[in-house]
């Protein structure tokens, strides 16, 4: 359904994927060796076990946006180092090199199955998709643009949470993004939140959880505290599927868990409910 979507974006391959060579890849789920071509054609979902490997922001945009329709916005907004935090500048540079992006999120407009939307997608390869001031600003600008144009907005999260290196300013992005989400909520502008692997902590506890509809990818790690902290904290043993998309679905925190190859179609059905008729 998304022919050529990966071919256009080969460069930003996922890092933790154990690549044997160009022709072969190893699945992070079942450890099976797969034909790279089959794997890519299957949207980086293991054809054997169904494990969903992470997508770069560009790959996900290619997956969701109709061909040639994505127009990036606010690309000039990037991180500063307001605290003079140890090693932050190095980490930002590494994030840029790892992801090929200037910041941990890309935002813009596109059509999705013909429906005009605002689309923002995080990239885990840029400092774990963490939210500092620049990410917060870009999320808010995307929401404000959606409000102004009365366009539905889809945000795909992948993030370890608030970015430690900007201290309290990162924490405040949680409030800032929810402030913009509040405006969308009051104005009745649809906001669809897509949780992908992993969506954690400060991002899950802010804009990612206040979508009108919350969709998750199968097997995605979705939770508040790191697993270690969660387990230390209590005598109760976590279930085997703790903090997965399926766990969150079971506990009522997610509306739908959607396999990647159906994500675009499901989004179009959801968006049409809000915008069509």
């Amino acid at each position: 359904m998304q022919r050529g979507w990966f071919a256009r974006h080969r460069r930003s391959e996922e890092l933790n994927l154990d690549e044997m060579n160009d022709a072969w890849v190893k699945c992070n789920g079942c450890q099976q060796i797969l034909f790279a071509r089959d794997f890519e054609r299957n949207l980086k979902v293991c054809p054997r076990c169904g494990h969903h490997h992470r997508l770069s922001a560009r790959e996900r945009i290619a997956l969701l946006a109709d061909e040639e329709t994505f127009v990036e916005r606010d690309a000039e907004v990037v991180s500063a180092d307001p605290l003079g935090f140890p090693e932050y500048v190095d980490k930002l540079n590494r994030g840029k090199a790892n992801s090929g992006l200037p910041e941990a999120i890309i935002s813009g407009t596109c059509t999705l199955s013909g429906i005009p939307i605002v689309l923002a997608v995080q990239d885990f390869a840029f400092m774990g998709g963490s939210m500092g001031s620049a990410v917060g600003e870009k999320v808010v600008r995307a929401m404000e643009y959606a409000l102004e144009q009365r366009l539905p907005i889809v945000i795909c999260s992948t993030s370890g949470g608030a970015r430690m290196q900007e201290g309290l300013l990162s924490l405040m992005q949680m409030a800032k993004t929810c402030a913009a989400a509040a405006k969308l909520h009051e104005a009745g502008v649809p906001y669809i939140s897509v949780l992908t692997d992993p969506t954690m902590a400060g991002v899950l506890a802010s804009y990612a959880s206040v979508g009108d509809v919350v969709i998750a990818e199968p097997g995605a790690l979705i939770g508040f505290a790191g697993q270690r902290v969660a387990q230390q904290a209590q005598v109760i043993k976590p279930p085997p599927n703790f903090q997965t998309a399926e766990f969150q679905l079971e506990h009522g925190m997610v509306d739908i868990v959607v396999p990647r190859k159906e994500l675009k179609h499901t989004l179009s059905r959801v968006l049409r409910f809000f915008t069509g008729g």
């Binding site: 500092g132 001031s133 620049a134 405040m172 800032k176 913009a180």
Partner: peptide, 10 residues
Amino acid sequence: YRNLGVWTVA
């Protein structure tokens, strides 16, 4: 809250 944060223009 809208104005909280420090970022820069590339």
